[in-house]
Simulated assay, not measured.
Amino acid sequence: MGELKERELIFVFTGPDGSGRKSVADSVGTTLGLTKVLSYATRKPRPGEVNGQDYHFITPELYGQLDDEGGFIENVTINHIRYGLRDKDIERSFQHNGCIYLILDPEGAEILKRTYGDHVIRIFIYADRNTVEQRQRDEGQLEDVIAARLSHYEADIAYQSQCEHAFENYDLAHTVFDITNTLEGYLERNLVERD
């Protein structure tokens, strides 16, 4: 794993499943022109997910092979599904952009914070339990999947206090606006408003 340069930052969007962290992260990333780094997952895409855009969806066998090669800096198992992040992908992304973003569960966010320290800025996205449950139903998730994901809700919410920033997400445009303004301070691009 290489050392990060002073201005290289990793914005990690985290929070409970159903909080809208993906929609928020992708909107903020597009607005600020950040490069997205994808994790690997050993599950099938959920409705609306696209391989190579949301995750690298791979077989458990290929995941095991990459893991045996020591390729993952973040390697977690959630509900019997393995998720991982490769340091090579992070290093490659920094060749294109000085700031990158990722979408990780709280466990993955914590691993990245321990690995890269102050270069990691965690943005915690949340909504109340009933809202995240309804969002998952609206996505067409199966009841057993919803139950499994909600079983982590309280532990995920507790991680909020360890993050650098936290935002309620009930209105996507408002949340994206607030986060974009917050992250501009880290980017130090000295933007000037013109009449």
Rank of each mutant, 00 (worst) to 15 (best):
G2T: 08
E6K: 15
R7S: 00
L9R: 13
F11Q: 00
F11M: 05
V12F: 01
V12E: 01
T14F: 04
T14L: 11
P16M: 12
G20Q: 08
G20H: 08
R21N: 05
S23T: 10
V24W: 04
D26E: 14
V28A: 11
V28F: 08
G29Q: 09
L34S: 03
L34D: 00
L34Y: 03
V37T: 02
Y40S: 08
Y40G: 08
A41D: 01
T42C: 05
T42N: 10
R43N: 02
K44M: 15
G48F: 04
V50S: 03
V50P: 01
G52H: 06
D54Y: 07
D54A: 10
Y55W: 11
P60E: 12
L62P: 03
Q65C: 08
L66C: 05
E69P: 01
E74K: 03
N75C: 09
T77Y: 01
T77S: 13
I81C: 02
K88G: 00
D89W: 00
I90P: 00
R92M: 03
Q95I: 01
Q95H: 06
Q95Y: 05
H96M: 11
N97A: 04
G98N: 11
Y101G: 00
Y101F: 11
R114I: 02
R114V: 01
R114S: 09
F124M: 06
Y126N: 07
D128N: 15
D128K: 15
R129T: 06
R129E: 10
N130E: 15
T131P: 02
V132P: 05
E133G: 05
D138F: 09
E139R: 15
Q141I: 00
L142G: 07
E143T: 14
I146A: 07
A147L: 07
A147E: 12
A148H: 11
Y153E: 03
E154W: 09
Q160F: 01
C163Y: 07
C163V: 01
C163D: 08
H165E: 07
H165T: 01
N169D: 03
L172N: 07
A173Q: 13
H174L: 13
T175M: 14
V176W: 04
F177G: 02
F177E: 14
F177I: 04
I179P: 06
I179A: 07
T182F: 04
L183K: 06
G185T: 11
L191K: 11
E193A: 14
E193N: 10
D195K: 13
